[in-house]
Nucleic acid binder design. Structure first.
Lengths: 342, 342
DNA sequence: TTGTAGGCGTTATCAC
DNA sequence: GTGATAACGCCTACAA
């Protein structure tokens, strides 16, 4: 309640005008303030425990100091690592991060963008792959167009389908390289926990993986590609389905690590040993993996860097068409996919 | 760039006054607007793609719609789960969450509180145990007093040492119960990875644990209590130190799960088997544990609920002294601490 | 260098 | 029920 101290109070206390107080405290562009006056103002501010009102400053200046971050679930290590990168970069740019979570409801993304537009966020970073959903993408594109029309900047982590700057993980190359590495280790009967049918990240990884195996002469049987939510539970269910189908699968590729961990849990539950009975690989190299046994083969995505990059991309001045920054990945072979050729 | 559409634009377009437009769009308290006029305004707003400016609204109304959340590291599963709870609760209260991270520098907390005060956040939730650091706590207490003096609400997750509403995990009871459970399973030679010396959460857990073992007639040897950072790396280093000391320890209690996971990694590295060679227990029951083998015994803290509770506590109107909400914990015995009595 | 005054976009208090 | 108009706290030409 206690009404805050305003700059006018400080000015009065210091015996100067509002303008001078403002300049003394904020060091206006070229205007400078006589040292003794500045001193008086600063002391008065200190004495009165004055705290500038960022909202009022934002109004007067015409721009805020906040950046919006949209994630699906902040407790998911994939998103929390990206968030760590975003907060780092935002911090360097002296921006506050407004965290908005869809709680796994894709439709809420549009809502959150509009919310962030009301806050007049300087920029919005959207984390998470897109869906093959024309209506959904169109709605999002509209919301983002409005936001940008009003002067906001946007960067997306995912696929460049929304007409905004995008940090795109090279999913295809990563999945392809992983498939070849697994093939080289002697695997010939791969199964895929493919994520949601229309999820572009899942699809890119799935298709590149199966294409590579096909090209290598060991095509993945259609029955060995099962879909499922992009979550721990989804991976668990998908793995159950795949294993109970009882095909001869020697390695399972889950399109992201969170699913792979769910799959690992399912295997444990069913008494299927990894990697003795079946090998397992994921994608992303989330932080959690350092604590998992057996160490999981995966394709590393520099998640924190991706967050930083997306933030920088959003904040960089630029004109012209939407830019796409492709992030390279790296296959990390671990014990969950031992060499079968020896 | 493109100047946003303002409410005046909408009013003009609809042929009504600014006041009416405001009431039509925002449904003022008791003032009501004739249906046809309201319709006209809403249509105009739609046509012009009007988006209210939350900052301006905040100025006019005298209160913002944002809530600050202070964490040490959002990528740490402990904090990200609490953050999930906070965003949920904030969402229900129609508040935006501003995520502020200290990046593991305790001193930055004060800075962040002041920053959030500039944003005129309605409330601040601070996650993370306190330190036994009079100067640091005093600085924080001052910053929070200022914030509250200016009308802000605060809730802390940790120890009630800052004079603000606090959600306190019952660390002592949890550690005591864990110690007794381990003792009942036959463990008599406990070691403790005790976290930072002055970290109150670490201290509460450590002391309750050792006190219980002492009371049970199996005191933990001082040499078997080692300190270390409250992190994965800290747990790893502490475990190395403990194991290389070569004492006869049959169970190791790490004061939080993140440290326990670091300890597990260290044990693996040194060829020490868990639980065959040494049993291991942690505290918190972070989400990561579901993927760890062997399943880790721990003391469950309902982290998401804690986040929700802290947010609600901060948002509840109340007068009088700072309140303390104690959250109960629950010992969860798993395979990392098998029964030795059989 | 300092001060005056207008404006940022809304809400809220008044009359009408 | 509707419409002027003064706040809200600050910044910034513009003038002195």
């Amino acid at each position: 309640m206690a009404s805050s101290v305003t700059l006018s109070d400080v000015a009065r206390e210091a015996g100067v005008s509002l303008a001078t107080a403002s300049r003394a405290i904020n060091g206006s562009a070229n205007r400078t303030v006589r040292p003794d006056l500045r001193e008086r103002v600063l002391e008065a501010a200190e004495r009165l425990r004055y705290t500038p009102d960022a909202n009022a400053q934002a109004m007067a200046r015409g721009r805020t100091t906040s950046l919006g971050l949209v994630v699906h679930d902040i407790a998911d290590p994939f998103f929390s690592s990206i968030a760590a990168g975003v907060t780092q970069a935002a911090d360097r740019a002296a921006l506050q991060v407004t965290l908005a979570s869809t709680q796994h409801q894709p439709a809420r993304e549009v809502e959150l963008v509009r919310l962030l537009q009301r806050q007049r966020a300087r920029a919005i970073v959207i984390a998470g792959g897109r869906h093959d959903d024309d209506a959904g993408n169109a709605a999002m594109r509209d919301a983002l167009a409005d936001f940008r029309g009003a002067g906001g900047a946007v960067a997306l982590v995912g696929q460049p389908v929304l007409g905004v700057d995008t940090v795109a993980v090279d999913n295809a190359a990563g999945a392809d390289a992983l498939a070849r590495a697994l093939h080289a280790r002697g695997y010939r009967h791969a199964g895929v926990l493919g994520g949601p049918e229309d999820h572009l990240t899942a699809r890119e990884r799935r298709e590149a993986f199966t294409a590579a195996f096909a090209e290598l002469g060991a095509p993945v049987q259609p029955a060995h590609v099962v879909t499922g939510e992009f979550t721990h539970e989804g991976g668990e269910a998908a793995m159950r389905e795949l294993l109970s189908a009882g095909g001869d699968v020697d390695v399972v590729f889950a399109v992201n690590d969170v699913m792979a961990l769910g799959a690992l849990a399912a295997a444990r539950d069913l008494g299927v040993r990894v990697p003795e009975d079946v090998a397992l690989a994921g994608f992303d190299d989330i932080l959690t993996l350092r604590d998992v046994v057996p160490p999981l083969t995966t394709v590393r995505v520099p998640l924190v860097d991706v967050g930083v990059l997306a933030t920088e991309l959003a904040l960089e001045e630029h004109t012209g068409a939407a830019r796409v920054r492709t992030v390279a990945t790296e296959v990390v072979l671990r014990a969950s996919t031992p060499d079968r050729t020896v």
